[in-house]
């Protein structure tokens, strides 16, 4: 299976609100692709459509060339972290991963492996309801890694992580990409993805504003420094932010 995510001309409305207005991009293996945009730009919606959780009004979304809903053991193809809070609070971290493992036919040993990998080995027996947001993010990462998938989609994985956790996450994302996986990481902060994302897809108001390599984006920006990557992002997304401001009012 080819390790790609292909999104083409996705449209999605919620009532009269347009969430996606013709989103197209391709995520390729071997590097981290940043998926950046202000809150409400359509990042999470795009991911949910790709993962079959939401149905688009138009357009297609494929992982490894096929729709997600046709996958028989999906966690061996795609690992995803969408909402770290999606847990039964009274279930232990290990048991949360155990039922996921059983749904794919994995042995319990695999659960312990990913718990160690996510740095949760010590707290595996504790109830997930007592976890900090950072620990929940790690548990979500462990769940995404459970099936050793060639494609990873992580929605705001840096949220709630402490500085040590951010360093760990960056290292992990780099390693995963270096292993030849396609890694799509969303964030509303460009700076979080500095130095790890080789490619960025910038979205705003349900549209793709830029789909380019980081070096090209920097080359197109006066000054060309890492600091001005943030400026380039703001320049691209200003309209989207203003739009959101109007909606809020």
């Amino acid at each position: 299976m080819e390790s790609t995510i292909e999104v083409s001309d996705l449209h999605k409305r919620y009532g009269r609100t347009v969430a996606l207005d013709g989103v197209s991009f391709t995520v390729r293996p071997g590097h981290v692709t940043g998926f950046v945009g202000p809150n409400g730009a359509g990042k999470s919606t795009t991911m949910r459509v790709v993962l079959g959780l939401a149905a688009p009004n138009a357009g297609t979304a494929l992982v490894g060339g096929v729709p997600y809903r046709t996958l028989r053991r999906p966690l061996t193809h795609v690992g995803a972290l969408l909402d770290a809070g999606a847990l039964q609070p009274s279930r232990s971290a290990r048991n949360h991963l155990l039922w996921l493992a059983h749904s794919q036919g994995f042995a319990a040993r695999r659960v312990d492996e990913v718990l160690e990998q996510a740095g949760l080995g010590e707290v595996r027996r504790r109830k997930a309801g007592g976890f900090s947001l950072g620990m929940r993010q790690r548990l979500g990462i462990a769940a995404a890694l459970l099936g050793d998938p060639p494609v990873l989609m992580l929605d705001e994985p840096f949220n709630g992580l402490d500085p040590e956790g951010i360093v760990w996450m960056r290292g992990l994302l780099g390693t995963l990409a270096a292993e030849g996986r396609a890694v799509l990481v969303s964030s509303h902060l460009m700076s979080e993805l500095q130095h790890i994302a080789a490619h960025v897809v910038i979205v705003g108001r349900g549209r793709v504003l830029a789909d380019t390599t980081v070096s090209e984006l920097l080359a197109a920006t006066p000054g060309g420094s890492a600091g001005s990557l943030e400026d380039a992002y703001f320049a691209l997304t200003r309209d989207a932010v203003e739009f959101r401001g109007e909606v809020a009012r």
Partner: peptide
Amino acid sequence: RAGESAPERSGGGGMSDFGRLVRAEWTK
């Protein structure tokens, strides 16, 4: 290498899709 070695299956390797699902719900 990603994608080439899926995690080993547990004992009931021949378990059907629905059987795995039932087992997962039981674990839940």
